[in-house]
Amino acid sequence: MEILDIIVFSLMGLGVLFTAIRLIIGPHFSDRVVALDTFNMIVIGVIVVLASVFKSELYLDIAIVYAILAFLETVVFARYLEGNRK
């Protein structure tokens, strides 16, 4: 099963890489916020798969907390962006 784990991780890692590129080059602030939102969702997936690899359901608590903080982060950045009005 290890090879399957590696496949899953590499797929998600490529996703993280693409969003990170968008996070760096993103022409506008709003593109960066979108990239960060997507990035966080993929990281939640990575944490959950890690929990499965380590066979410990305690890691799922971390995924829940990460999901909460990721949502809050998106909202905070979006509300900040609204202040940048034309």
Binding site: L58, D61, I62, V65, I68, L72, R79
Partner: peptide, 23 residues
């Protein structure tokens, strides 16, 4: 029993309050 405890839990309470303020 689990990773976590008072400090992260308290931070989540506060982030809930922040969410309501922003929303």
């Amino acid at each position: 029993l689990t990773p976590g405890g008072g400090f992260p839990g308290g931070a989540i309470i506060a982030s809930g309050v922040l969410l309501l303020y922003l929303a």
